[in-house]
Amino acid sequence: MAPTDLVDLAGHEQVVFCSDTDTGLHAVIAVHSTALGPALGGTRFHPYPTLDAAVGDVLRLSRAMSYKNALAGLAHGGGKAVIVGDPHTAKTPQLLRAYGRFVESLAGRYVTACDVGTYVPDMDVVAEETRWATGRSPERGGAGDSSVLTALGVFQGMRAAAQHLWGVPSLAGRRVGIAGVGKVGRRLVDHLVEDGAEIVVTDVDPAAVDAVRARHPDVAAAEDADVLARSPLDVFSPNALGGALDDDVVADLRATVVCGGANNQLAHPGVADLLARRGVVYTPDFLVNAGGVIQVSDELHGFDMERAAGRTQAIFDSTLAVLAAAEADGSTPAVAADRLAEERMAGGGATPWLPRSSPDVS
């Protein structure tokens, strides 16, 4: 299948292929929607085996960003970019600047940020060539590490699930299993410890587990994510790679709630139905992990952590609304979240967005 065969022209507004011979840059930028405002989404740097694989990934990710930004109440549509290559060997300042020039050429239709394989210092370099790079360092007027508010948002999603199921917006006394204690997972542990939860963690990097347990000695450790998912838990929280929930894992899952920061947690859409049939409440990942995009979007208005954190706290109310809607109409939370996002995008699509001359968009 040729890459162009993957492009859903009815669903994506624009797909841009970027190539720079001098630096070896090969990238794809996908703008799914600008119905609510300029498309916002991170840049993933990954050694895709084929261009088809890169295009397929960026199309899925950009669409998900439209839904995430809509549910977060942001004046942004969805976009995403992928740079093809091993970030450990292919990433150079020259390549990042070349990429920044492509972002700038879109005149504000796409605003970028960090994602897998790109970090705050990378966005500082990209920003040398474009006004439309967020996730920059505080020294460059940016918000810094977006995992701060990503973790806060996931915690708010958990609190909402607890309110929905148990009538109390707290995880105190509940057993929470966290798979992946990198940037987001370790910050999530801090929130849960303060809330009084019993916590079990795992990570492919033993040093990450050791760091969490050194900070919180009462936190237990599981052998791996599969063992953790099959343990008696109140909440299972995937915070590493996507696809953590497949048919086999769901069949053995003993948790009552799934709520985590990882993107694309469901191996396929049917997993949402499997979870519902087993009585497991799933808080859609693109709903609860929106704290990071809320944080970087705030840079466009002169970053204010208190303001961004306040918007992230609202994930509690959004999650409650989605869970209530799903219960009321007998659908899954995934379907209810999609419907709410689509309603917001449709409502915002009457007036087309026009790029401004500066990044102070609203």
Rank of each mutant, 00 (worst) to 15 (best):
M1R: 12
D8P: 11
H12P: 06
D20N: 15
D20Y: 06
T21L: 14
D22C: 04
A27C: 03
V28C: 06
L40I: 12
T43H: 00
R44Y: 04
F45I: 08
H46E: 12
P47E: 00
P47C: 09
L51A: 10
D52T: 09
V58S: 01
K68L: 12
L71H: 10
A72T: 10
L74K: 01
L74S: 00
H76E: 00
G77S: 05
I83A: 07
G85K: 01
G85S: 08
D86V: 08
T92K: 13
Q94T: 09
Q94E: 15
R101F: 08
C114E: 15
G117P: 04
E128V: 03
T130D: 05
G135P: 14
E139C: 07
S146C: 04
S146Y: 11
S146E: 10
T150C: 09
A160Q: 09
A160L: 10
Q163Y: 03
W166M: 10
G173N: 12
G180V: 11
K183H: 15
V184G: 06
G185M: 07
R187M: 10
L192N: 03
G196C: 08
A197Y: 03
V201H: 05
V209D: 03
P217D: 01
V219A: 04
A220W: 01
D224P: 00
F236E: 00
P238I: 02
T256S: 14
L266E: 12
A276E: 11
R277A: 14
N289W: 08
V296E: 05
M305G: 01
R311G: 10
A314N: 06
D317I: 13
T319G: 06
L320I: 13
A321G: 07
P333S: 08
R344L: 15
P352Y: 12
